[in-house]
Design a protein around this nucleic acid. Structure first.
Lengths: 228, 228
DNA sequence: CGGAATGTTGATATGCCTCAACTAAAGTGG
DNA sequence: CCACTTTAGTTGAGGCATATCAACATTCCG
């Protein structure tokens, strides 16, 4: 989340809109990128591909995110970025961004800050996967998705998009389809949320956050959200 | 790893040397930091503390690393930084660093790049913990430690420091003490390394890297190392 | 030398993965 | 619009990797 001024400056950048369908890759592991992208709509994911073809999803990105700011300074992609549903992104060449930095250093710092928050999200994911049992892990995951969507202004009627299959959630949370399916059933019993048709509806935030041991401080929002 | 010029500029910054003994924290979760630190010697770790007191180690840092560059733009620490053995760090106030950026933007970009590599390391850790069985996970971990030490010029006689107990390795790899102990024994059978007295000695890099499915591209070195 | 930290080994338990079959929903073409 | 195909979700059974618990050995260190 950039400040309004920074966001305005970014919008003035010459950019090209690119769309992708669910399942398509926008960048692949090993690619060189000479442009970054800003998500306009839909959901992107970063993922590693393992030998054998399995995936580990690393993070998910929604409108307003810069999932690829890192390519500004890292020559090759160490992961791929794919579309989880129909997606539109603004593609901005690196040189444009670098040129803008010179005029507005604060914008550079703001984007830097975004990449640091990204890193904080990865850290939290390590702990989530490493230390929490599968049901709590899922609860934490749902909390993060919802909280970030809310911070981005994408929540309406306590509902946001979550266009992931249970298989994909399993590959994000280092679990299996069966494992996630059963965790989902266990969590549903808490009546704290509903997940249908790619939409996540929160019924009882407190309970879900409690269950998932979710503390949003790692997201480093400038002002905390008021959760219902 | 900054470029020689950048590193020289950093060395000119007024800084204060601070030391810490094994087990001491340099910064705690929730703290505000108004200075960053550069590791001079010893090993630091970042970690999350869980309710119940358990730890999840997130990353380890050796001489030359900036484990805390993120505090430049993130107000509060979302994790702690502790010393794994006797440590010396150079403490540089944020305002000095920011002032230097103005004179040498390239330095800012170099540090930004370092934080992006940090993030890549976290991502790899997610995959390592999430998708690899415990023995391969350990092998991968040892490879990363050694490879980074080598890149930093801290390897002599195919040996580097690794001042961690099996309990600490377990808390880094989302395993248990017994689990790590047995993985260690299994790995030792490959004769590819020795780990004693806080020193890691590599006997057969190829075999260990193979076992741990270790591909160093995520470390984004400018020129790859030649491994013996 | 004694005590604490670290590492090793064995026994047992269990969370979750794997495999497999089946149901439900969604998407497609005649 | 219905039959068909594909994708997603559900359920059960069985096995295994790894956690947990407990005792003991070893090394480190004051």
């Amino acid at each position: 989340m950039l400040s309004p001024e920074d966001a305005a400056a970014v919008r003035m950048l010459p950019s090209q809109t690119r769309t992708a369908a669910a399942g398509e890759d926008l960048i692949r592991q090993g690619d060189r990128a000479d442009a970054s992208m800003i998500v306009l709509s839909g959901m992107l994911a970063r993922y590693h591909t393992l030998k054998g073809g399995g995936r580990q999803y690393l993070s998910f990105h929604i409108a307003g995110d810069w999932p690829e700011a890192q390519s500004l300074f890292l020559e090759r992609m160490d992961h791929a970025i794919g579309a989880m549903n129909a997606v539109a992104v603004a593609v901005v060449p690196h040189r444009r961004i670098m040129a803008l930095f010179q005029r507005m250093p604060s914008l550079g710092f703001a984007i830097w800050r975004e990449t640091l928050i990204d890193a904080a999200i990865f850290r939290e994911s390590i702990t989530n996967i490493g230390k929490r049992e599968i049901t709590a892990r899922l609860a934490h995951f749902l909390c993060e998705i919802f909280y970030r969507a809310k911070a981005a202004g994408l929540v309406k009627d306590d509902t946001c998009d979550l266009p992931l299959s249970q298989t994909q959630i399993a590959d994000a949370l280092a679990s299996s389809l069966t494992g996630i399916n059963r965790a989902m059933q266990a969590l549903r019993k808490t009546q704290s949320f509903e997940l249908r048709g790619g939409r996540l509806h929160i019924r009882n935030w407190r309970r879900l956050a409690e269950y998932g041991d979710f503390n949003p401080s790692y997201l480093h929002l400038r002002r905390p959200l008021r959760m219902s």
